[in-house]
Each structure stands twice: as structure tokens, then as C-alpha cells.
Design a binder for these strands. Sequence first.
DNA 1: CTGTTAGCGCGTTCAT
DNA 2: ATGAACGCGCTAACAG
Lengths: 342, 342
Amino acid sequence: MATIEDVAREAGVSISTVSYALSGKRSIKETTRDRVLEAAAKLGYLPNASARTLAANRSQIFAVTAPLHPDTDHSAHMTFAMEVTKAARDLDYDTLLLVHNDALEGMKRSAATSLADGIVVLDVDAHDPRATLARQLACPVVFIGIPDDTAGLVCVDLDFEAAAAMAIDRLMAAGRTRIGLISHPEETLQRESNFPLRFLHGFERRVAELGIEHVEITPPTHRGLEAVEQLLETMPDVDGLVLNTNMDVASSVTAALALHGRSVPTDVSVIAAGVTFSTLRFPVPLDTIPLDAHASCSAAVEMLARMVETGATLPETTLITPAYNDHGSVAPAYGHATIQAR
Amino acid sequence: MATIEDVAREAGVSISTVSYALSGKRSIKETTRDRVLEAAAKLGYLPNASARTLAANRSQIFAVTAPLHPDTDHSAHMTFAMEVTKAARDLDYDTLLLVHNDALEGMKRSAATSLADGIVVLDVDAHDPRATLARQLACPVVFIGIPDDTAGLVCVDLDFEAAAAMAIDRLMAAGRTRIGLISHPEETLQRESNFPLRFLHGFERRVAELGIEHVEITPPTHRGLEAVEQLLETMPDVDGLVLNTNMDVASSVTAALALHGRSVPTDVSVIAAGVTFSTLRFPVPLDTIPLDAHASCSAAVEMLARMVETGATLPETTLITPAYNDHGSVAPAYGHATIQAR
DNA sequence: CTGTTAGCGCGTTCAT
DNA sequence: ATGAACGCGCTAACAG
């Protein structure tokens, strides 16, 4: 590969002129800059990554820890990893993938060896050991997801509690007063994956505030039919349903309800909330309060870059306000005046 | 962070002694080595990644290009990315994720800047532009998957043609003579994703050799029910079925068949072939010819490491022999003597 | 068996 | 506006 020296010789200038011409960190006369740029293009010059890192004390690499659990929703997982990577590239960073059994050691290693300039933590549990570690590391860390104790951490995520409340309010506004929630499987809650818990809390708080009849289902598996049957057993006259589940469950709920004589949205109005997938291709599309991976990831990555580049200290927690996408799966209850929900 | 010089001072030896004591690249007296190791541990010393890379001309990083298409099976995709990363860690390499819109440019960049020592290419198409690029790069590249033109490339993958033949032979051995194949959706074949094509070829060649009645379904969507209905329309008396699909389709096939009065394995014997998922938790587990991500990825990564470390030139194509996992979804046809299939 | 030292390629300070 | 030179932290060739 061509080195900066080759470019300097080709352009008939000194090494530092090349460096500055390319980085723009100080002004270079128009004509000489052009000559340098031309020479660099001609030689296909790209600065050696490690030399640049060593000299600048910056690797332009973020490490990403994304543990894979048996109950992990691969699709959501992949979406987040990809969105982080894309957002990072936009800011001229590459991303290093840290795997599960290497999560803690990997974080330490990439910080201690200056492999990475910053770390992105995905799929956060309530008592995530990576939170403890992050507090000890000199290296900037951003969590996409929110552990119970956020002291000294920088976290970004959808406001799941607000999303749950929003779902309930929408159903209420349509006159739905017997509301079910199908949540993530027991296994996921057991390990204290935190966003389903936060959604649950938001749900419970809002139904308590409003004094609504409700029931929560945490199915033992990721199967929609079982969940619906369990729901109907507990609350046969359910008329509003909130889904905080993966796509498999959500996509089969309408059919499962039909199997038991309930139509969507007339008998049961349904909202999918805090989900990464689109329901537009479902036989019956569902109103959705999206978990927007792009929004979370680009916000997180931008914060991380700012911490790395300016040494900024950022607010502990950034909650993303939920949005509502109406696809017609919520209808006024029989005899209920239509209320403009907003 | 502590540097190698700190360790040298702490241990009372020279810098190079520390380097050699830690790398083991030349013999050091037992007692001094111990002193060095102790000092390093005490200071929590880890060599600076970029300094090491610059000096050794080796980054211990592999780049992984894993494009995400609209029809991508996220689960399989994630599995492969993770397996590559794990296998790489086992050999002391980290992995850098290259995203789709950055695939070609990312490969060039990570090679030209010496960011990566090698590149792993996933999800290979028949006419993959990354193949052309790989031939021009000085950097070692391994394909997990096989493009049409493998000249000058190193490729590893399951022998999908043999897997298809094996599936047919098993069904034949059970006296099944009217065989259906449910393949990947049209969209996937359109973009010439190569492993479904290779499976199709293997299937077609084998049925031609044996003169078997057969039908191939490439469903427009990823839905099992439609695929089965299409199959039964074309071949109502199908008695053997090969599934080269994603998990969603495979998991719903048994129910779809039941809906149309066919039982597994009696009426229709079923084999899932070239699939990454397990069918053990299906209501009716299926005989499986697995696409073993772990096997492919660790083989590929080991080859890549060998190319990087020894400069070895490796055979173009390594096909992994398919295995057969019997779970009872293939039964002898009525009136057919049981034949020992092996 | 161990120490000395010359780079690896680039960013940046200090001169000019 | 430009150039010379130092140093980032480490590996490996060379010298003993």
C-alpha cells in the first residue's frame, strides 16, 4: 500500500502537508491541496488504520456487546446490531462484535488495549453486570436499554412505560375497558430483560390509575395461539388487547382470536406496542407503537461519538417518546361515541 | 494504561524481554519469565492494540460482510454472524461487522487500511460482486457459501447438492416415490442467493437420475400454508416432502398438511434439509439434514487464520458432507418393505 | 539467554 | 502556508 510519504513525494510536498490537506485540521493553499488530493487519489492512498490510531490515540472503532440468549428474538437483535453499525459508519466508526461468553472480558479488553474508542451495550437486563463494569471503565459506554440502576451511566431507549400508557389510553378512548396484555415469555422476564419489565410496569401503573379491568399473559412459549387461549380463559369478554411480543406471536393473534369467534377490531381492538417489526403485511395490520431501532441506535451512537470526541458528560437517561401508527385495528366499542384520540 | 515499558521497569528487565516473555516467541529463563508475568499481572498490562498491529503488521481482526436483504432469514443470518465471531475469538481474532450498503467499499477499506487481516463473506449470491472484488484484494478472503465462479477463491459450505440427494434417497428408501420440494421464496431465488439454487440443482439432478415424479414449490411468501396448498394442488398424492425453507414455513407444514387430511409421516414423510434451525420442539419433529453454522464457520475461520498466518494457498472449495438426524418423520410407505437406509 | 535499537505509518508541535 | 522532527507502543532483527 501507498504510504503518506509516497503521496508527499508524488505531490512534491512534505508529509505534514499531506496530513493536513487530508484532515483539514489546518488551512492549506488551494493549489497545493489540490495537488495532494490528486496524488492521493492517483496512488489510491488510504491512511494505515493502526498508524493513525497510534498517533491520534483514536481507533474509530466502537465495540458492540449483543448477548444472544436462548429466548432472544433474533430478528430484533439483528436489527439493532445492524442499525448500530450503520449509524456508526455514518460517523466514520466501524463496529466490533462482542459475543456473549466474551461480553465482560471483551469490554475490558477492547477498552484496555485501546481497541475501541467506545462501547455500545445492547439487550440490557435489569441487573446487568455490564452496568457495573461500565462504571469502572475509562472508556465511554452507551446503553441501548435501561438497567435498574442508571447511576453514572448513559442510557437511551424507547419510553416503554409511556408506550404502554399510550396503548391503554388509545383503547380507553375507543371505549375498550377490559384490556389484556400479551407480554414476552416467562423465560425472558425471568432473566430480567428490562424492556418487557418496564412495559409491564407502565401497563400496570396506567390500569391502576384508571381503575381498568385487565389481565396479563406471559406465555410459556413464543406461540400466539396458546397465549390467546390463556387470555380468553382468564378474561372471556376482553375487548382490548395490547401486544408486547415478537412477530411470531403478533402475526398469529388475529387468527387465534378468529378461531375463538372474536373479530379484530370489532370484538377485540388490538395494538402492538414496543415492537420492532411492521404489521403492514399481516392479514389484518395492527395499530403499532413502534420500537424504532433506527432512532434508538442513531441517538445512542451519536451520543457515544460526542463523548469520545468532546469528552462530554451526558445526561444519564434519554427516553424516546413513543409514536402511534394507526392501521385500523382499534375501533370504537359498540355504543361508544367516537372520541378523537391524539 | 500501563505500557510495556512500565512492565519492564517493574520486572527489572528490558522491553524486549517483556515482549518475548509474553509472546513466547523465544525462550526466556523460567525465573525471569515469571517475574515478567507477575509484573504484567500486577499492572494489569495489556498491549496496546494499534501499537502491536503497527509493529507486527497484523491486526488480529477479521472483517465480516453480511448483507441484509428484505427476504433475509434474520435468525440464520444472526447465527452465522455469531458463529463466525465465536470461532474467530477462539483463534484470538475480533470481528468487524460490514453492513450491506458498505459491503464492497467496506471490504476495500478494511483491506487497504490494514484494518483487517482477513475477510469473511457471508450470504453469497451466484454472481456476487464481492467475488470479483476478492480476487483483486491482496487481503485473504474466505466465502461461506459458493458463487458460480469460484476461480481463485476459497469457499466453504455445506454440500447442498449432496444434501438434496440424501433427502431424496431417504424418501426413496422408505418407498416414497412422489416427492415434493418446498424451496425458498421466489424473491430469494430471483436475486440468485446461491445455496437454494444449489439445493434445487441437486434435487433436480437426483430425481432425474432416479426418474422420480416430483414437484418444486417456490412460494411467493414465507408462509407454510400457502406453500402446502400449492403443493397439494399440483401433486395431490404427494407422499414425500423435502423442506428447504426457513423455520416459519417448516414449523407450519405439518399443521397445513393435517388441515388437508394428510398425516406425517404416514401419508407424507417429511425431511427438512439444509436448515439452520432445530425441529425438535415442533409438534412433530422432523428428520433433518442440518446446515451446521458452527461447522461451516469454524472451518472457514480456521482456513482464513491459516492463510493469514502462514500465507498458505488453500483449495478453492470445501464442501461439508451432510449428516442425517432421524426424528421419525419418515416412515415406510404402505406395502413397502423396510429398507435399511444409510 | 537477554539487551539495544531501528523502524512500523502517521499526527502534531515547533520552527520558519 | 509549509516543513522537520519527535513520539505513539510495540515487534523483531541484531548484537552480545
